[in-house]
Design a protein around this nucleic acid. Structure first.
Length: 512
DNA sequence: CGACCTTTGAAGCAT
DNA sequence: ATGCTTCAAAGGTCG
């Protein structure tokens, strides 16, 4: 059967390739080009021992069959990430042109990213469909003999509008040249118990394909009961601390970020540029405050690592990323709030630091003027050190200077009331446009999926009149009820109209 | 031993 | 105003 599957895949790929009208849509070529990258993930997945992955349950088409109906094509071509040329993404290219080579074309999107030879950011972190991990599959979709069924022209049953394939529909099975297809490990091979291998285990070096982790979702949790408890992946997170468990990053967050006395002393400025440069290099690096996801990762990493045999952080992070999307809004809000506090404390410290530096400089000048014979060293060295770390409690009310970010404010409406006006007027918060745009993409994708999944038009019937970020309390029920969450800021009037009026506009826009 | 990978989000810079 | 880049954590992996 596996041979049949593989051969069928090969044939399918060949057929698709030969049937393609456009040369530009023959993406196996660019894919192969990518395989030549120094860090050849495919070379790694092609390891002989990995061929055993194919011996798992017959779910050959899983990755691209996972979302047969969800139309969230607008995520697939987000802005290319800095490190965009990620090889594994290329795997999905060939599939891209398979089902929709003719239909996906749209005059409004003359050169979508997936048609270019550039980087196919199929799974851009910020545009990953939040529902991806939650899609449930019918058994039909797993029919080992019917992977190609997915390859039929992908047309929205409701609108009849051809839609580009969703990234999650893209299959690692059409990644390589036909000759290489058969060597691709089963995308779930790592996940599927086989020959006594533990769940989440991975042959050494075998887990180079990111999909395994990405493929982790609620429906698959049943497959990973022993080593990876359901709560690790299920939309509901019984294992997740929902009540105010102090976040480690919050308990003592400042210590790590506490910069050492800055090298802004007058002595430094007098040194040669080279010396100054060296000093700057040696200067303790003030690390960025952890964002919500980082806080979440920090907290959950140990759990994930403990419950699976994977140790690679890259893989763990993928899992965590999926779990993050699966988090409920409230749960995410908790971390957004924590992150906001982190930023608030940092800003406060920064300002105090600047203030104290200014004061110290003034004092130094005064001291120099008045007591030229005395050393200014004590003053300079003493003042820069920042104030002792604020405890979360003590800092809670000290964030008046921290402009609540939209995500923070909106993601944490359920959080304990803040101490200042941002809670009183959450909707008056100025929203960073960029964030809004990104969120709109998130929301758009999410809503598009919702709209596709529901022909009732319920989503569209929601008052798209909100010109302000929606607080959680006013989120459409369908959204609130949905396990996957996206950044809490949602401009319904942005998301839905965009999708409904110009479904490809986002693709075009993001494709550059 | 340093760079990479991988995730999301925030900040800063460039246009 | 918008978009892009960098970097936070983590640890296995690779050259």
């Amino acid at each position: 059967d596996l041979d049949e599957v593989k051969s069928s895949l090969v044939n399918e790929s060949e057929n698709q390739s030969s049937s393609s009208d456009s040369e530009a849509e023959r993406r196996p070529q660019p894919a192969r080009d990518t395989f030549q990258k120094p860090r050849d993930y495919f070379a790694e997945v092609r390891r002989p021992q990995d061929s055993a992955f194919f011996k798992g349950p017959p779910y050959p088409g899983y990755p691209f069959l996972m979302i047969p109906d969800l139309s969230s094509p607008y995520l697939s071509n987000g802005p290319l990430s800095p490190g965009g040329a990620r090889t594994y993404l290329q795997m999905k290219w060939p599939l891209l042109d398979v089902p929709s080579s003719a239909t996906v074309k749209d005059t409004r999107s003359p050169s979508p990213a997936h048609l270019s030879n550039k980087v196919p950011v199929v799974q851009h972190p910020h545009h990953m469909h939040p529902l991806t991990p939650l899609i449930t599959y019918s058994n039909d979709h797993f029919s080992p003999g019917s992977p190609p069924t997915h390859l039929s022209p992908d047309i929205d049953p409701k609108t009849g509008i051809p839609r580009p394939p969703h990234p999650s529909e893209l299959s690692p099975y059409y990644p390589l040249s036909p000759g290489a297809v058969g060597q691709i490990p089963h995308p779930l091979g790592w996940l599927v118990p086989q020959q006594g291998q533990p769940m989440y285990s991975l042959p050494p070096g075998g887990f180079r394909h990111p999909y395994p982790a990405l493929a982790m979702n609620a429906s698959m949790s049943s497959l990973v009961s022993s080593r990876f408890s359901p709560h690790m992946v299920a939309p509901a997170h019984p294992g997740l601390p929902t009540s105010g468990i102090p976040h480690p990053a919050i308990v003592s967050p400042i210590v790590k970020q506490e910069p050492a006395p800055p090298s802004l002393s007058p002595a430094v400025s007098a040194k040669s540029p080279v010396t100054v440069k060296k000093e700057e290099e040696k200067k303790p690096h003030v690390k960025k405050p952890l964002n919500a996801f980082m806080l979440y990762m920090k907290e959950m990493r140990a759990k994930v690592v403990a419950e699976c045999t994977l140790k690679e952080s890259a893989a763990i992070n993928q899992i965590l990323g999926r779990k993050w999307h699966n988090l409920s809004r409230e749960e995410q809000a908790k971390y957004y709030e924590l992150a906001r506090k982190e930023r608030g404390k940092k800003k406060k410290r920064k300002r105090e630091k600047q203030l104290s530096q200014t004061q110290s400089q003034q004092q130094v000048q005064e001291a120099e003027g008045a007591l030229a014979s005395k050393s200014k060293k004590p003053c300079v060295q003493y003042l820069p050190p920042e104030k002792p770390c604020d405890s979360p409690a003590s800092s809670h009310g000290s964030m008046l200077d921290s402009p609540a970010t939209p995500s923070a404010a909106l993601a944490s409406p359920a959080a304990p009331a803040a101490t200042h006006s941002e809670q009183a007027q959450p909707l008056s918060l100025t929203t960073k446009p960029e964030t809004r745009a990104q969120l709109a993409l998130h929301s758009a994708a999410f809503l598009s999926a919702k709209a596709a999944a529901s022909s009732s038009g319920q989503m569209g019937s929601q008052p798209p009149l909100l010109s302000r970020p929606l607080p959680l309390g006013s989120m459409p029920t369908a959204l609130l009820a949905s396990p996957p969450s996206f950044p809490a800021t949602l401009h319904a009037h942005q998301a839905l109209p965009v999708l409904q009026a110009q479904p490809l506009s986002l693709v075009t826009k993001s494709a550059h």
